[in-house]
Design a protein around this nucleic acid. Structure first.
Length: 351
DNA sequence: AAGGAACTCAACCGCCAGCCC
DNA sequence: AGGGCTGGCGGTTGAGTTCCT
């Protein structure tokens, strides 16, 4: 037996709203409010509509201070930045953009912003041809943890990463929290499910965070799908890890360019249940901002200094790349020597 | 000018969490 | 405690519009 429908489907109108219906709904809500019950509202308002449909119409179109129309560059940046951090949680993203609805942002992402990323695919494919697809199997959760040093050696990659400036990392609890002025995204702290089996490639960025405050080693590995190809073939990859190719003006702004922004998702693995309870990482999705480029037809390693929200290449005379407002995060690692690789504000990517 | 393709976006669908009885 | 109801959400659809050939 299926669930009971929320309304009498045969007796409700579907499809586009007429101006008369809009007026009725608007007038009713302005006069009486929603009454805390959308299901009962259409009958009270004299509308032959499903309550859910009324709610949607009000929230997405009729309520005051809704903004429609072109998205600004700044909004682009915010959307891309948040998408890279939290994925397709449109309501959370919309909360950061006054006047925008989650539906608007979702549509905008699906029809415009995402395409901007895909237009960069040929460039990435060219670049990725330099990387043989060497299967790399991440260590499954067990007591025999890879240290991040081993992990990183295996991946031949190391880097530091940064978080959006409304987030902060509590190294003592390995949790991510959100500044008060962004309380609408505090539910970022919801636990992250264990990562699915994932084949990583040599050109994947990987990272590890494997100590807690008591220097107990637990296994935590990152997932970062290699690539744009995987994203291209399976959009769910966007949820697990991705690269977003942006522009010289900052990730995902409208103009073309060569910078890219990656996302790292952390699975949290603990050596036992107790530690999991104690150190459960609520959600750790960090953004990596890096700038890679091709020199003489060969992909080169490139290091950057992230300072004042700008990425400055350390070794080459490249243009400075403006980033979204990221704060930097010092990677926490049990191996003290390893922190030398993780100088705060430094972003290195080697392959 | 016509018609097919591509795009846009409002609206719908169904799942899920939380509340209430 | 648990079942039903509701609101909220993300994914998807499809009608209307614009673009392209």
């Amino acid at each position: 037996m299926g669930r009971a429908p929320c309304c009498d489907k045969a007796n409700v109108k579907k499809g586009p709203w007429s101006p008369e219906e809009d007026a009725k709904l608007k007038e009713f809500i302005e006069k009486y409010g929603t009454g805390g019950n959308w299901i009962a509202l259409p009958q009270k308002a004299g509308l032959k509509r499903c309550g859910k449909s009324c709610r949607l119409r009000w929230l997405n179109y009729l309520r005051p201070n809704i903004r429609h129309g072109e998205f600004s560059e700044e909004e682009d940046r915010i959307i891309c930045s948040l998408y890279a951090s939290i994925g397709s949680r449109w309501s959370v993203i919309a909360a950061q953009l006054p006047g925008r609805t989650d539906n608007d942002i979702k549509n905008y992402w699906n029809t415009k912003l995402k395409k901007k990323l895909l237009t960069m695919l040929p460039y990435f494919q060219e670049k990725s041809s330099f990387f043989p697809s060497i299967p790399f199997q991440p260590q499954p959760p067990s007591n025999d943890h890879l240290t991040s040093h081993q992990f990183l050696n295996n991946s031949s990659s190391f880097y530091t990463f940064s978080t959006p400036n409304f987030m902060n990392v509590d190294n003592t609890s390995n949790s991510l929290f959100v500044h008060e002025e962004h309380t609408s995204v505090t539910d970022l702290q919801s636990p992250v499910p264990p990562p699915p089996p994932l084949q990583l490639h040599a050109n994947s960025l990987m990272c590890n965070n494997n100590t807690d405050v008591n220097d107990n080693c637990y296994s935590s590995y990152s997932m970062c799908n290699s690539p744009m190809q995987e994203y291209y073939h399976n959009s769910s990859a966007m949820k697990e890890g991705m690269f977003m190719f942006g522009s010289g003006n900052g990730a995902c702004s409208s103009s073309e360019g060569g910078s890219c922004m990656g996302k790292i998702s952390y699975g949290d693995y603990y050596k036992d249940h107790e530690e999991k309870q104690k150190y459960q990482i609520k959600q750790e999705e960090y953004q990596l901002a890096l700038h890679d480029h091709v020199l003489g037809g060969q992909v080169q390693s490139q290091s950057f200094m992230i300072k004042n929200n700008h990425v400055t290449p350390l070794q080459n005379d490249l243009e400075e790349v403006k980033l979204p407002n990221f704060s930097n995060y010092l990677f926490h690692d049990g191996d003290e020597n390893k922190t030398t690789h993780y100088q705060k504000g430094m972003c290195s990517y080697h392959y």
